[in-house]
Design a protein around this nucleic acid. Sequence first.
DNA 1: CTAACATGGTGGACGTGTCATCTATTCCCG
DNA 2: CGGGAATAGATGACACGTCCACCATGTTAG
Lengths: 166, 166
Amino acid sequence: MKFMTKVRWLTAREERAWRALQFMQMRLEGELARQLAAASGLSYPDYLVLVALTDRPDGRMRLFELAEVLGWEKSRASHHVGRMVDRGLAKKQKCDSDRRGFYVVVTARGRRELEAAAPGHVATVRRLFVDRLTPGQLDALGDAAEAVLAAFDQSADGQRDGRVRA
Amino acid sequence: MKFMTKVRWLTAREERAWRALQFMQMRLEGELARQLAAASGLSYPDYLVLVALTDRPDGRMRLFELAEVLGWEKSRASHHVGRMVDRGLAKKQKCDSDRRGFYVVVTARGRRELEAAAPGHVATVRRLFVDRLTPGQLDALGDAAEAVLAAFDQSADGQRDGRVRA
DNA sequence: CTAACATGGTGGACGTGTCATCTATTCCCG
DNA sequence: CGGGAATAGATGACACGTCCACCATGTTAG
């Protein structure tokens, strides 16, 4: 913080956008999670994992790959997949080419539960989000989000400069 | 689900916007939390509570009010404030006019920690989010988010129709 | 007045996410 | 080839959030 002689607080417009976005996200995630839990035995993270797995023709994926695709830390993926294995939604398969690793594989039950949950989930995403916005707004949101994300990837070094570490 | 003869899956554009937004939010919240933790002893929820409290002239607020302002459930607020009290960031004050209730009050320590953390936090919000977008994009985001939020509030009944409870 | 109901808040159980640390393997460079 | 660095993953401790059941107080209608 030494280098910041003056703080540039957020303007009213900036703050409004920032707050609205945070509230929207909070509400959306909450409703989505609740809807899934009520209509199926799946949590939202479960759902995301199952979607990722069933997107593959062989319904399997290395653990670290899953973590990458979902943007999760490896540890999180490990914990979560462990729980899903316990509930019979996925199983682990030793990997021949790399004896450190595993494949995470969807089970028949996992597939069934995903197929049962997907229509309701998509309908909720539509009802709460997609159908509330014009196509133009959707594109604008997508552009903005991707701009922010792009900045993230480059600034993997900017994270460690004086502003952040103080 | 009985009434949905056909599922309207997301189009590529819709899915792209939805995904990008989710990833953006995940990354932002993660970085924000990490930055706060590294630069201060505060978690992100701590920060939000302290901001809410210090926004009041008397630095205090009823627990249920805090929950409303932050969009939290009462239980969450109760748990979190409890932890903050343990760490000396806030304290509880019996309420005369309603003997069931409490005021949550910022302590001097809470104020100090917030003031120390705020500049770095705001700088991070700027670096990762605000400064990546044009004013037009910010407004568009704000409008879109508020449109989605508005829909939430009305549809407190639509939540319980056939699509959700199945 | 009092019985029913609503509201403010607590507490525990559970699932989830993060961090730090650890082991086993594989990669790579001299 | 040998040895250090990177990688795959597991694990334990902890903070966080949700749900649900619960208590105490307040409010309201008959």
